[in-house]
Design a protein around this nucleic acid. Structure first.
Lengths: 358, 358
DNA sequence: CTGTTAGCGCCTTCAC
DNA sequence: GTGAAGGCGCTAACAG
């Protein structure tokens, strides 16, 4: 492979001049510029990033840590991140940690070894203090998550209010025995959603039945398994609010296997509005997060940090939206009298964002 | 950040000795080794990868190009790749190209700029000659895909025979009007699956009705839309073989919206066996690809290439498996007489592979 | 406008 | 067993 010296030699200039042509900075006469360009073309020259990286002490790379690449929710965030990255000449180093703290640590070492200029963390498991310490020295941004009492930049939705909204929706349909399938409770957003659920019940004068709160791990399987547990209860719930769509979909299957129907026997609400939510049967009522937007914003934030610019709004909270489909049905008959067949508003099959084509 | 010189100074040795301790190569007395280690700890030293990369002309990074990160099929492949990568001290640079040739080209440039040591391509759009040229100079491996008459290492399943098998299954249930939802036909695996579908029909003495073959783009939406088209036909099909699960799931929704039932009115078979396949209603009959295995193998292959070792089996074809669930039902009544209610064999809800936990 | 010089941090000879 | 020297490819500062 040709180096900058080879190009310089062929164009009969110094390496510095070639570098100037390359970067576009510094004055170069049109004539020599031509010569250099020709030489580059002739040698099929591609600047070696390794030399440049070392010299400039930067890699134009950002690490993105996600706990579970199989969750489509994260795919969409990654798309948002990557679109901005590409536009700005950056590359993303994907770290799928599978919820393994050791693997997370591995990627943090890569950051420290200067292999990347910044880091985007989504629902990480590293300890708060560790993140804080890291964020003091390196560009770090939290996506979908935030740190209490800390000023690490973050983008997310208000999970408490969203969960409250979702639960309130079930309450408004007449449900009083509402279960909640939580995410792993060591993750703050799981706790936030749990809190929103509790708030909604309390506001309705209801108390929280601990038997109806089950901790899952976001997967289809855990939703399925936990729902079976709930159905085995002496007093099973009439509605379920799952902390993400995958668990909700798993729950639907469990309900159906039991010979019951959604929403007639059990109403279900999910969270995230992944693409499948509109395609399962019945289509899932869920809280739509602006995933793509979250990704975009997170990437823009690290970029600011990397460039030493101030971040306009370091703690960004984006809007979510309750998408009502069929999985929670119409208002529930209050034990005896019907309430008329009101058609629920149906959410869109999908929202096309970015450059997706049907 | 401390450099190797700082450590050397503190340990009162030369940088060379520190380097020796770091790499474990070259003899160092136990006493000085201790001193160096202590100095490293004291300074919280982390070797700068940039310097090392430049010196050694390697980055321990492999680029993985995928056309669509939202497709869960690829997520699983990535997991396989990453697990091997981590184990071998490599990192993956994820390139989600969204089927954009320009974006692919961008990532190939990164490879040429020495920012990565190798490349794994999954169903890429770059021209064959371009890939060939690249593969001659750099470690390149194809996953899920292969190049005709070329010796670029690849791992995939035999898509022709799998598709034949899937279609034959529908034929064996008594269907004769079987539609096929293809992937984008510029991708070789789409053409292979189409070919398998055609072969099965021919072997059954049936001809292919062009109206029943529709080209999609792997997405839920395209499956939905194409199925609507098929249902609008004067003679709609009684069965559909979709080239992937997402399109199959989209198709199910279209069928149901039309007031028809799966599999009673229309039988559906998918391809890939993504996690959702077992969770939709009815659970999807599909061809299970060993995604994780494909990923693992692909990564092992690039590593061989990078290390200049020979690859045991450069053209690897892995086993697939038809997973029979409920979406294609029991043998079809031949117009008039019933055929007894035979229960279909039900596939597993999911296969747990790797370190996934329920 | 262009060339020379001097490293970025590391590893690998080659001496001793 | 250890140190000194050189250079991977590039760019920034300084001369001219």
């Amino acid at each position: 492979m040709a180096t900058i010296r080879d190009v310089a030699k062929l164009a009969r200039v110094s390496p510095a001049t070639v570098s100037r042509v390359l970067s576009g900075k510094g004055a170069v006469s049109e004539a020599t510029r031509r010569r250099v360009l020709d030489a580059m073309a002739a040698l099929n020259y591609e600047p070696n990033a390794l030399g440049r990286n070392l010299r400039k002490q930067e890699t134009k790379t950002v690490i993105v840590l996600i706990p579970d690449i199989k969750n489509p929710f994260f795919s969409e965030i990654i798309r948002g991140i990557e679109d901005v990255a590409i536009r700005e000449g950056y590359t993303i180093l994907l770290g799928n940690t599978d919820n393994d703290v050791k693997r997370e640590a591995e990627y943090l070492r890569i950051l420290n070894a200067k292999r990347a200029d910044g880091l985007i963390l989504t629902t990480a498991r590293v300890e708060k203090d560790h993140i804080l310490a890291l964020a003091r020295q390196k560009p770090v941004v939290l996506a979908c998550e935030y740190l209490l009492d800390a000023d690490v930049p973050s983008v997310s939705i208000d999970n408490v209010s969203s969960a409250r909204k979702a639960t309130a929706h079930l309450l408004s349909l007449g449900h009083t025995r509402i279960a909640h399938l939580t995410g792993p409770l060591h993750v703050i957003i799981s706790r936030d959603r749990l809190q929103g659920y509790q708030q909604a019940l309390h506001q309705h004068g209801l108390s929280v039945d601990p038997a109806l709160v089950q901790e899952g791990d976001w997967t289809l399987d855990s939703g399925y398994l936990l729902m079976r547990k709930l159905l085995a209860l002496a007093h099973p719930p009439t509605a379920v609010f799952a902390a993400n769509d995958e668990m909700a979909i798993g729950a639907i299957r469990a309900v159906r296997e039991r010979g019951l129907r959604v929403p007639d026997d059990i109403a279900i609400v999910g969270f995230d509005d992944i693409a499948y939510a509109a395609y399962v049967d019945p289509p899932l009522t869920t809280v739509a997060q602006p995933c793509y937007e979250i990704g975009r914003t997170a990437m823009e934030m690290v970029l600011h940090l990397i460039r030493g610019e101030p971040i306009p709004q370091p703690q960004r909270v984006l809007e979510d939206r309750l998408v009502i489909r069929r999985s929670c049905g119409t208002p529930r008959r209050r034990n005896d009298k019907g309430s008329g067949a009101r058609m629920p508003v149906e959410g869109p099959i999908h929202q096309s964002k970015g450059r997706g084509k049907a």
